[in-house]
Amino acid sequence: MSEHSFSILLSILSPFLTAAIPSIPPNYALAAAVYRLAHGAGYKAVGRRFGMDSPAACRAFYAVCKSVNDKLGNLFEFRSDMARIVAAFGWISLPNCCGVLGFGRFGIDSAMLGPNAALLVQALVDSEGRFLDVSAGWPSTMKPEAIFRQSKLYLGVEETRELLNGPAHELSDGNALPQYILGESCFPLLRWLLTPYVRSNVEDESFGVSEKAFNSAHSRAMGLVGTAFARVRARWQLLSREWKEECREFLPFVVVTGCLLNNFLMKCSEPQPDVNEECLEELPVFEGEMDASGERIRDALATHLSRVSLRR
């Protein structure tokens, strides 16, 4: 983090930090928290570096995380910046797309959750890797569909109707595409959530041209989620390590902090970490009933994408 970005962040968080931990200067608290996030350092090492004891370093870290969640929450811009999001996806031949939805995995040492225990984080990202919506803290033993249907994103579309209610986009063949997002195959196919074509069994014939075009575009888009999580882990090494069971309840809070700071640093035009695309969590393919309107919309988009690919 550059000195300029640090100064901007400090000016935003200082009032909260002064009230929350008056015994620690806000600049020391923020510097200590950023250092712990970036290097994965323990509280003892952080305390030595910034002239405080371990309990004070712990208080500073969680005060900063809380202030980032409270004061920078507006940087999840799904509700407020839809025109920019849609326009940017349009440039990569995905008309009226409003984001890409997938899961990240953060390991924990937990006997309760069994081997390879983890917390899952459902994230929606834009075409540049900004986080638009994050739902963190779900145990890896939970089915992806159950996580999805309990998330604020799902409720905001299906129940309150506050999201994805913008104008449809008319394709050249006259079909209309409502606002939609792309999602992994572990999600149900819905009118607003388009998942890839999946063969029901290995004996099925190969996909047609339009299905292949859709799955190819879908796969590239899903890479945006993997890259976004890879950048968060690269920048904040604390999130790359396995967490202990006793710290499990705090991990979702810290993951959201890392995602918000990722967006903040993008807004400050900080250079992004050089990363390889992260492989997303391998999750079981959704086996429930497909939504008929979702199938029609996916087919229309697939036909459009096949025409676009032929013109290249």
Rank of each mutant, 00 (worst) to 15 (best):
I85T: 14
L164Q: 07
D109Y: 11
Y43L: 12
P15T: 03
G226Y: 10
C98P: 06
P55V: 10
L10I: 02
V64Q: 04
A136I: 03
P95G: 11
Y180F: 15
A29Y: 11
R36C: 09
W91V: 13
M52P: 07
I8V: 15
A31L: 10
V255A: 05
F61E: 06
K152T: 10
Y154K: 04
E245G: 01
C186M: 12
D291C: 15
G107N: 14
K143C: 03
N215M: 04
L10Y: 04
P196Y: 08
G99H: 09
L261N: 03
G137Q: 04
D81R: 15
F214T: 01
L13S: 06
H218K: 03
T195E: 06
D299G: 06
S206Y: 11
D126P: 09
C98H: 11
R241W: 00
P25C: 03
A56G: 01
F106L: 13
R298T: 08
V100A: 13
A123K: 03
R235Q: 14
S93W: 08
A117K: 03
S206R: 12
D291N: 15
W91H: 13
P167L: 08
I85W: 02
G107S: 15
Q179L: 06
L113F: 02
R298M: 08
T257R: 02
Y180W: 04
E249S: 12
L132T: 07
N165A: 14
F89Q: 04
L124P: 06
E203A: 13
I85H: 06
V100M: 08
Y62G: 01
E282G: 02
D299M: 07
Y35V: 03
F76E: 01
L193S: 06
S5M: 04
